[in-house]
Structures are given as structure tokens and as C-alpha cells.
């Protein structure tokens, strides 16, 4: 589904991604871990199409298409979803109007008629229930005045609405209390099918107890320096990144 080959990206002349290779197949769950500032969010942003990052090398193929040629909105409609580490506040744009505009585009892209108002509201209600999102958020502006946890839940709610083929969850667990964590993880699991894939970026083993990854990658200093099974997370939890960092620093 997704094939990243030797992807390099920089910002303001500083190279952040230094040759990323990653293969994600339908039905898989990948976790990306790694120390702060290693480039995890940058990778997610580049995949979503943020143009402040300049891609200086490599290829990204998504469902057979050259992803890097598509605009962020086209990527979204093709089935990429990024749950932001820091969801953006949009004063004056209600979550209802926002989702309505987004869903209309997705449906048009799939050759479907946009939903009428009552269908849409029903659909929204259903998806809200899925992520146990409190009803009172809907009239409010996108993310404005939401608590940290509500913002994260809102990201998963949007994911539920858009049903992406590939969801990239950037630290969707951070700032969540243990109950909220379960709710969010539960939501993500319910959305999981054999045809879609998920990349979870996280610092904590805790989340991976609920969203069980098939493969874990360690991203350090712009490269994936280690890949393993789910036991890798436990190892990292115990020993930290010191050993991996040391080895990587020797190599590059």
C-alpha cells in the first residue's frame, strides 16, 4: 500500500529526513518510536503534503501512485489521514461545517453524491459514538477551547468519518488519561480492517498494549535504525535508546 524509498527532506536548509525506507501492506499496523526531534512528525507531515518541508530525494508510492506529486487534499481523498500531534484550532469554523466540507469532497472523489443534511448528521452521530466523543463539541469551532484529550479524540473522530486506507497517528496517545487512551485505542481498533493500514507514532509502550503493532521501527536522527516485532517496544521501555543511538552514531 505504501512504499517509502530513501526519502530525504529538509527544512530551511537543514536535513531532517536522511533516507527513510518503509513498506506498509494492507492490514498491517506499524509503530514508529524514537527520541524527541528524530523526525517522526516530519515524516508524517511530508506524507501528508506539508510544503514547508522540501523533499530532496527518494520516492513515495501510495496505492501505485506517486504520492509526492499530489496536493494534501488529493492525498486525503486518496486515503491518507494524519492525526496531528498538535491539532490546529480554527476559530469560526464549526466542526460540523468542517467535516461536511471534507466528507463531501471524499464522496465526490469516490463517485458518490454528497450526503444531505440529515444523512450527514446521522452519520456524524454514529461516528461520534464510535469514539465516544461528547455531543457538545459539534456546534463549536474546530479544536477551539478543546482540552488536550478532546483534541486527540476529535482527530480519531475525523478519521472515523473519512475512513482512510492509511492512518498516521502522531502521538495520539499523548495527553490522554488512561480511560481516554482506551477509548481512543478502541476506536482505532474498531476502524481496523484487513484492507487498511495504520502507522502509530508513539513514545509509550502503553498504547501498544491496546493497538498491537505488527512491526515496530525506531527512527533516530532522520533514519530508521532498527526494526523489529512488538517485543522491541518492551525492550525500549526497559533500556531506553542509548544502545541504539550509540550503534547508529557509529554507522553514520
Amino acid at each position: 500500500m505504501l512504499s517509502i524509498q530513501n526519502l530525504k527532506a529538509e527544512i530551511e536548509g537543514k536535513e531532517i529526513l536522511k533516507g527513510i525506507n518503509l513498506e506498509v501492506k494492507p492490514g498491517e499496523v506499524h509503530a514508529i518510536m524514537g527520541p524527541n526531534g528524530s523526525g517522526k512528525s516530519t515524516l508524517a507531515s511530508v506524507l501528508a503534503g506539508r510544503d514547508i518541508f522540501k523533499v530532496t530525494g527518494g520516492k513515495v508510492i501510495f496505492k501505485g501512485k506517486n504520492l509526492l506529486e499530489l496536493s494534501p487534499e488529493e492525498r486525503s481523498r486518496e486515503g491518507i489521514f494524519l492525526a496531528f500531534q498538535y491539532p490546529v484550532e480554527i476559530p469560526g469554523v464549526s466542526i460540523t461545517n468542517f467535516m461536511r466540507a471534507a466528507l463531501d469532497q471524499h464522496r465526490i472523489h469516490r463517485g458518490l453524491e454528497p450526503m444531505n443534511a440529515s444523512e450527514f448528521l446521522r452519520y456524524m452521530k454514529e461516528k461520534k459514538a464510535l469514539v465516544e466523543l461528547d455531543a457538545k463539541l459539534e456546534g463549536r469551532s474546530v479544536n477551539v477551547g478543546f482540552s488536550g484529550g478532546e483534541k486527540k479524540k476529535n482527530e480519531v473522530f475525523q478519521m472515523a468519518m473519512l475512513e482512510p486506507d492509511l492512518a498516521i497517528l502522531d502521538e495520539t496517545d499523548s495527553g490522554l488519561d488512561i480511560d481516554a487512551l482506551k477509548v481512543v485505542a478502541n476506536g482505532v481498533n474498531k476502524l481496523k480492517t484487513k484492507d487498511n493500514a495504520t502507522i502509530v507514532i508513539t513514545h509509550y509502550q502503553r498504547l501498544l498494549d491496546y493497538i498491537v503493532p505488527d512491526i515496530i521501527h525506531v527512527l533516530y536522527n532522520g533514519r530508521i535504525v532498527k526494526t523489529g516485532g512488538k517485543e522491541l517496544a518492551l525492550e525500549l521501555e526497559k533500556h531506553g535508546y542509548d544502545e541504539i543511538k550509540k550503534q547508529a552514531d557509529k554507522m553514520f
Binding site: 487534499e73 490546529v88 469554523v93 475525523q158 473519512l162
Partner: peptide, 20 residues
């Protein structure tokens, strides 16, 4: 950017932000 990652075209996103 956030709006565009949800599939909303740039022009429409700009319109929505401006009327907001």
C-alpha cells in the same frame, strides 16, 4: 494545511477561513 489534509480544496479552505 490542516483543512487540506481532510480533503478540503485549498480555495474552499481559504474561503471558509476568511468567512470565519
Amino acid at each position: 494545511f490542516y483543512m487540506r489534509t481532510r480533503g478540503i480544496p485549498e480555495k474552499q479552505a481559504k474561503t471558509m477561513l476568511t468567512s470565519a
